[in-house]
Structures are given as structure tokens and as C-alpha cells.
Nucleic acid binder design. Structure first.
Lengths: 339, 339
DNA sequence: CTGAAAGCGCTAACAG
DNA sequence: CTGTTAGCGCTTTCAG
């Protein structure tokens, strides 16, 4: 069968030029005369030649592969991000090698090693926390990394998130303005910076108005945990509003409140989420939520990563992008509220 | 900086053996004495050595990379599949290089070429149709390919789907048993084999009972198109049941029927979907649907692909896996119905 | 079992 | 601009 694998040498032979001439024609920073280019292109086309990316990677040291670590694809925010990330990178001539990380921290280490084995040009870690020796390992290997939708204390680690503190504060202000005073919070996984920041911004703003959190339960960013959490929260002295750390859990919260507790949303209780995933806009939920500006987050991530790839000495950047509170029907809207 | 990139030669030097000895220790089909293995492993550990996958790929001709082409990650079925696919492959020592395909057919060609450039060991095409010259191109390149959740007429092309014809038939039988006679169908994108098969199985079973499709509109597997489609379908002589070609559209259909048409589901109209994505089980939709057995589909896909990689002469296989109709609350359940 | 040697396909100096 | 010459880091004969 036609195991075609055409090499540059074969093209060279057919074009009557040297092998390196062929290489030059296919190398962006080229330098070949019009005649050569034409002859080579013709021969290449006839033979169906395409440069072997791996061989190129070996010698150039650039694989044009970006390793992407992801954990949960269940939360619709991630597939969306993955798609945008992949598209943006593709547009720049890079491709994404996917690594599914288990939740365990030890597991993550193995995953990073595997990534490094592929000589990736960079790593994007979405929704995962890296230990400091892991980040050190990457630095040692000379592979830039940027955290997506998660931040870390290490100032040398680039990270792109939405402005979770401001987001949490917005929700607090909104709920307060709506007249809510018995406000509950369903937390995400406590190891996540996003969870901590959303809660911090939220609580701070509440406290600033002299309002204390009425109730707090942990949902770990999981629907089932969120389900249990709401049930606990409503057993005694139910809140009149609940801020849920992400939309994914908020759907479960709304369903539980409506169909198990038989309460009306937003009549009996207002629900606000975070992310603005597609389903938040579906009429069945119509969830008021803080939008994570995925497009801008992706653009920033790609830009930071690529500049670090181009110049290793580019300083780390930590970006928190502001996202709007999207007003929908799951929470009472204060009269005259505008933002 | 510690651009560590340790090579096998360095390990060899430190271990006091030849470079090829190091290679053997790290090559599965090895053959090295216990002493050598130990010395090498020790030196490698001390230096933090790991074989360069790309270099290995160059000489061995096996990159252990699988190219995955995907189009829509909006339909939750795909992220789920991607996750399972990636995990299963990872378990076998392979990794997934993602390629987002635009919808245009010409675009797909470019994507496949790019994939080939990476010397992938195999290709999984999810939810995309390949032209025959493209499949020919892959065959010529000696790269096996299997279609996931989409089939093609070409008998030489391996494909894994659920049994869409049987699934469609199940829905028809169920709706008929429920006493429905004015049955509508919202089609997916007509270029998709899944769409055609689901409809064929559905209509055949209906016809067998002497029932004609009451109405038919096209939703293209898109929520917005589905929205328009339902609206059209209900303007005159509305159906009392609707089979929607996938869950993704079914959510839009349910929302439209409930919140725009102010009809009751399943009171006024039964709705049945296809896929059984996570959201179908959420109380807000509680969608009766045909389950696509993702785990088994993934297992089959991986198995077919890997055996083709191991032995190029492995014949193509076309698998259609049966999935159950999952009974929930969006459609009237016939009395005494059991399946 | 082990080392030496020959490349995989390509890019990057290096002289012309 | 072009051809020649080295390798990238590794696996794989081939002798020993």
C-alpha cells in the first residue's frame, strides 16, 4: 500500500535541487529564489509532500505543541474554554495535546512529566493546582506554563482568571440592593483560588454593609455535593437568597429548591451563579450569574504563553479580567437597578 | 537557568554504560542485565532523565499520538466522549492531539493534513464526515482512522455509533404505545448519518403501525434552529408528541414549548430526545431519551483503532451499539410499559 | 548481554 | 541564494 511518507530528499531529487533548498522553501524564515521556490513547490505538490513536524521539532527544539491539563469537562465552562483555546492556538500554528488529570495531587505530577516528555513548547493548566516543585520542574525544563481559571500565590506563575473578588462583590451588592438579608453561600472546592476569591469578595461586601453570611455550605463544584449542601442549608431557617460558587452547582441548587423543597425561584429565594455557561441562559434556568469573559481570558492566556515561548525572560503576569453580572430571572432585581 | 533536557548519553556517562544500554533500559521490549538496569535507573533518577518521546517517534515511526477531530463541543455528549476517549487512550500510553474542525468540508481537509504532519499513529474523527479522497489520503499515509458517532457508506472505514436505527424505532414504539398519533420530528443536520438513521428507524416503525409523521422540521443539531423549528411546527395543527434528534435540541424544544407556547410537557405534548447527556437527567428537563452508551462506544473505538495500529491489515469494523430508552418525565409513559 | 555505528527527516550553520 | 556538512535524541541492526 502507499505508505506515502514523502521526504524532503525525494522532493529535492525530483525538483533537481538540494535537500536543504526544500527545507528552506518550507521554513517560514526562508530565503530561496523565486525559481527554486517554484520548482520545489511543484515537485512537493506532485509528490504530496508535507514537512514532518516531529523531525522539525527535534532539530529546532520547537514542537509547536501546547500541553493542556484539564480536570473536569462536566462543567460546561471548560469545554467552551478548551474549544476557544484550541482554536486560538491553532490560528497561531500550535496544537493542543490533551492531558486529563485526575483530582489527586500525586497524579498531577505524573501528568506533568508525561507532558514534558512530548517536548511541548508550553503548558496551560486549567482548573488544577500545581505544587511548587512541579512548577519548578517546568521552569527547570524551560517550559513556560500559565494557569487558566485558577491562580496561585507564587508570583512567578502566570495566571489568568476573571476578577473573582470583584465578581463576588457584585453579587453581594446586587443581593443587598434587592433587599435580601438572609443570604446563604454554597462554596466550591475549597482548594480552588476561584472559590476562595469569589467568597472573599462576596463576604467582604456583605460585611461592609453590616450583613453576615446567613448560612454556608460546601458544594465542591460538584452537582451532587451541591444538592446535599442546599438540603442542609434549608433544613432550618432557610435563606432568602443563595449565591452559588458556579453555575454548574447552581443548576442543581435551583432544581433542588424548586422540585424538592417546592419553593419558588426567585419568589421565595433568589439564586445567583458564576460563569455564565450556555445553560445559564436556557429558559428553564434563566440564571442570574457573573460572566467569565471566556474570550478575553483565552486571548490573554494565549498571549502570555506565546510571549513566554518567544522570550523566556518575559516576566510572569497575573491577570484578573472583570466580568459583568448578567441579570436574568433567577434573582429578584432591585427596583431601578442598573449596571 | 536549568534548561535540564537530560539526554540518554548523559545518563550513560554517569552510569558508566553505553548510550544504547540506556535506551534498552527504557524500551519496553528491552534486554538488559539486572546490574545494568539498576545502574541506569539510578543515574537516570539522579539526573531526572526521561526519554524524549519525539526522538523516539522519529526513529521508531510510532508517535503514540492520536489525532482527534471534533466539531461541536457545545453538545455535552462530545466533551463527555472526549474525556472518556482521552482517558482510555492515556491508559494505553497514547495521547490525544486535538483538532477543532470548522463545519466546512474544505476546512476539514486542511485539518486532516495538519494531523498527518504530526505523524499521528491514528485518527479519531468525531461527528465529522470525511470525503472519500480524505480517507484515501489517510490510507495512503498508512494512518488508521475510525469514525466516532458517525458512519459512512464506505465499508472500508471503521465506524462506531450507537444503534441509531434501533433507537429511533424504540422511540416510535414508545410514543405509539403511549397513544400518540400526531407525532412530529425535529431533524438534526441532514448530512449526518446519525440524523438519517434515527429518523429512518423512527419513521419505519411509525409506518409499520400505519402512522405517518404528522410534522417534520429541521433543527440541524443547533439549539437556535431547533427553536425556530418548533415554532414553525406548532403554528398550525400542533403535534401531541415530538421526537427530537438529540438532547441538545430537545432542551431548546422543551423550553420553547413550555415558556413560549405555554404548553405542558408531557401533558400537552410528549418530548423525547437522543443521547442522554447529563442535563437530560436534571430535574428541570427530566428528559426521556435514548442513551448513547458512551463507555462502550469509546471502548470499541479505542480497541478498533489500536488493533489497526498494531496490525495494518486488520479489517475495518462498523459497530452500532444498542442503547436503552431512558424513561423520565418528559413523555407520557404507556400504562404497563416495561422495557 | 552489550557497545559501536547507522540513521529517522529535518534545520542550521558554513562556505561558496 | 545555494549546496554541503553536522547533528537533534533516540532505536536498532550488527558484531563481539
Amino acid at each position: 500500500m502507499g505508505q506515502s511518507k514523502v521526504t524532503s530528499a525525494e522532493v529535492a531529487a525530483r525538483a533537481g535541487v538540494s535537500q536543504s533548498a526544500v527545507s528552506r522553501v518550507f521554513t517560514p524564515g526562508a530565503s530561496a529564489s523565486g525559481g527554486t521556490v517554484e520548482k520545489v513547490r511543484k515537485a512537493a505538490a506532485e509528490l504530496g509532500y508535507r514537512p514532518n513536524v516531529l523531525a522539525r521539532a527535534m532539530v529546532s527544539g520547537k514542537s509547536r505543541i501546547i500541553g493542556l491539563v484539564v480536570a473536569y469537562l462536566d462543567n460546561q465552562f471548560y469545554p467552551e474554554a478548551l474549544q476557544k483555546l484550541s482554536n486560538a492556538l491553532q490560528k497561531q500554528g500550535y496544537h493542543v495535546l490533551i492531558f486529563m488529570a485526575g483530582q489527586s495531587a500525586g497524579d498531577i505530577g505524573a501528568v506533568v512529566e508525561e507532558i514534558l516528555d512530548y517536548q511541548v513548547d508550553g503548558i496551560i493548566a486549567a482548573s488544577v493546582a500545581l505544587s511548587s516543585d512541579l512548577t519548578e520542574r517546568c521552569r527547570a525544563a524551560g517550559v513556560p506554563m500559565v494557569l487558566f481559571n485558577r491562580a496561585q500565590d507564587d508570583p512567578h506563575m502566570s495566571a489568568v482568571t476573571s476578577d473573582n473578588i470583584a465578581g463576588g462583590a457584585k453579587v453581594a451588592a446586587f443581593l443587598l440592593a434587592g433587599g435580601h438579608r438572609r443570604i446563604g453561600y454554597i462554596a466550591g472546592w475549597e482548594g480552588a483560588s476561584t472559590q476562595r476569591d469569589r467568597e472573599a469578595g462576596f463576604v467582604q461586601r456583605l460585611e461592609a454593609a453590616g450583613v453576615h453570611l446567613h448560612a454556608r455550605e460546601v458544594g465542591n463544584f460538584r452537582m451532587d455535593d451541591a444538592h446535599e449542601a442546599v438540603l442542609r442549608m434549608f433544613t432550618t431557617d432557610p435563606p432568602d437568597a443563595v449565591f452559588v460558587a458556579n453555575d454548574h452547582m447552581a443548576f442543581s441548587v435551583m432544581d433542588t429548591v424548586r422540585f424538592e423543597l417546592n419553593l419558588n425561584v426567585p419568589g421565595d429565594v433568589s439564586v445567583v451563579g458564576y460563569d455564565d455557561v450556555p445553560a445559564a441562559g436556557w429558559p428553564a434556568y434563566d440564571l442570574t450569574t457573573v460572566r467569565q469573559p471566556a474570550n478575553r481570558m483565552v486571548a490573554e492566556t494565549v498571549e502570555i504563553l506565546l510571549s513566554k515561548i518567544k522570550a523566556a525572560d518575559t516576566p510572569a503576569r497575573r491577570v484578573a479580567i472583570d466580568g459583568p453580572l448578567v441579570l436574568r430571572g433567577s434573582a429578584r432585581i432591585p427596583e431601578g437597578w442598573t449596571e
